[in-house]
Amino acid sequence: MSTYNPINALLLFFAILIMAFFVFRPSKGWLWLILNSTKTNDKIVVEDILKLLYHNENADKHLNTNDIVRTIKNNERLIIENINKMVLHELITVEGDVVKLTKSGSDYALRIVRAHRLWEKFLAEKTGFKEAEWHALAEQKEHELSAAETEQLASRLGNPQFDPHGDPIPTQTGKIAKIKGTPISELEVNTIGRIIHIKDKPDVIYRQILAENIHIGSLIRIVEKTPERIVFHSEGEAFVLAPIVAGNITVTVLEKDMTFEDDLARLSNLKEGETAKIIGISKEIRGDSRRRLLDLGFVKGADVRIDLINPLGEPKAFLIKGTSIALRNNQASKILIKKE
């Protein structure tokens, strides 16, 4: 202890702290990089190429080697090497310039797509991750799930048909449900429809749609359509979108006699002393928290009013079916009501 003095001790401490920061920092820390560098192996490159080809062939586009190198963000030599390997394993064929999937290649691709979409469904139903984070997380997880794990996941989720964006999840045997719908941009004024699909690419537009709080499953009614903008009502709010954005949202058109509630409000906007009827729960609430709200009696047609307000404004307790239930604003704002 001869060299001890408090300043040295503190300096040493902060030096260790800074070191630790560099080593353990998530996603940029050295530890993370080391762990990850061993993971960016051939498998990921191969699977990414397969997926890329699959999506493009579905859109009837054919890619050459250059396209692939350009789109996949990875070491160029690695990609070329792997393309050659994939030809050897008969996953793809190269005819002239064009790269095509073989039967076994497209089966493989389907399995990856299945894993990806199932994982997105899982994130939506069983975790608290934000919608904007799903895609990136599933992009990683699809490479990690083995075939058996994928099937386990599917059965745990009840073999869902669609992922949370409305994209069909291929079945184990490779069947894919067709999306039958119309982009919002092609609908006439006053059509009523239900959103069934939101494209999660390109990212810029997808983020814009998310920021607007538009969700799969919501009912909409078109109220205005011009070349510059499309206006529609959904869940008591008006949305204004540019046609190219609206083109990324697909709806199924519903029958004429469907009643569309226009003057909806949200439970969070209910004032003390007012009463209201519940119209429904926004599709944004999913999984267990949706079920719990239904179980507690927040179902269509139930009467609701405010029972108590927290001294700081939130949460509020609502009187529903004779019981006082407190909810935070982020949930209450997703319960649609009609004031009386």
């Binding site: 267990d288 079920r291 719990r292 239904l294 179980d295 507690l296």
Partner: peptide
């Protein structure tokens, strides 16, 4: 329990 329908 409030219900037996959920998976909680």
């Amino acid at each position: 329990t409030y219900s037996l329908l959920s998976t909680s």
